[in-house]
Design a protein around this nucleic acid. Sequence first.
DNA 1: GGAAGCATGTAAAGTGTTACATGATTTT
DNA 2: AAAATCATGTAACACTTTACATGCTTCC
Lengths: 184, 184
Amino acid sequence: MPLNASSFLILGMVRNGVNSGYAIRRTIENMRMEAFWATTFAQIYPHLADLENEGYLVRHDDPQGARPRSAYTLSQKGEEALDAWLRGTDLPPIEVRDEGLLRLGFSDNLSPEETLALLGRLRERSEAAEREFCEYNLSMAAGAVEQGYRAALMIARMGAEYYAWAAAWFGQLESELQRELDSS
Amino acid sequence: MPLNASSFLILGMVRNGVNSGYAIRRTIENMRMEAFWATTFAQIYPHLADLENEGYLVRHDDPQGARPRSAYTLSQKGEEALDAWLRGTDLPPIEVRDEGLLRLGFSDNLSPEETLALLGRLRERSEAAEREFCEYNLSMAAGAVEQGYRAALMIARMGAEYYAWAAAWFGQLESELQRELDSS
DNA sequence: GGAAGCATGTAAAGTGTTACATGATTTT
DNA sequence: AAAATCATGTAACACTTTACATGCTTCC
């Protein structure tokens, strides 16, 4: 089983002390990490089991009262694989799937009013994403969790700034189109 | 068969006069449309056949000499489906998968030098993407293809500006880290 | 004559999402 | 007592990518 990006997401989480499938999913949600690498419970649990079978992770029983719980730690092999990936000189291309931009790209047949409405929805979607990142950034700054999580915070800050940029970009297009509409 | 975003990409292309599977793939490549919705030949050809079976597209034989070729046009049903999608008020969330950002997010264990190298690779990748968008934008401005392709050009311009922004962002992080390194 | 590009596909594998199922614990 | 959250998974489905296969045409 060759490791893929999802494997390293899990290994990285475990090294950061996020040691159960449930905790990994929740952390990804809280950190808005889905913004650049999404996953679901249905992916994480089987993947954790695979990584244990292949010797990258070690599983421990860690029940909370009568509720069973599996906690994981990195094995030597897991540490090495994660470090090799972090130091790798390859860099796979970014993959984006944005149905909204696709729609904008085929909007030539829409009326100016309809295009304005679409641009407004795109801007609002970016504004909402920006707000979510800002909320996470604030909650992090409040706690003293910054020890050892510098990189994750850096990414979240980039997310906030990117979505602010995108919202402004859509807003500018709206203004231009509105001006054209007014002057005709 | 409910239509998905890939269906509308194909319908939109056909309406714009890009009427064969081969031409659709090449146009997506030339326009750098893969930056926000990627596809391959292996997806397009069966999908075209499905859309024809369901009555969204009409197929015509359009051989070039002895080389066979299938050309498509939109049916009434196809036109309507495409317009309904363009005017839809729903807006599915953006999906991004960026192994590079994932790596940066787990880079706390790297040395400053190694982090600098990673940031440099990320910046270069953005710079390369920006160049590709600019090339397409220039090739469009040169030709008189702007008639009816205003939206596609708008998107390509956004692509160029976004990657310029991202490259600058990574560059700034590099400078900050370098300063820290120098002053210690 | 060979390389590059035009043109169309199939098969298999890999990856990811949705829906479902179960039961314990904590909070209101 | 009900709702929310913790915790773990399976099964089916949908989607995408990779590799392979074939043959024509144009340019060098």
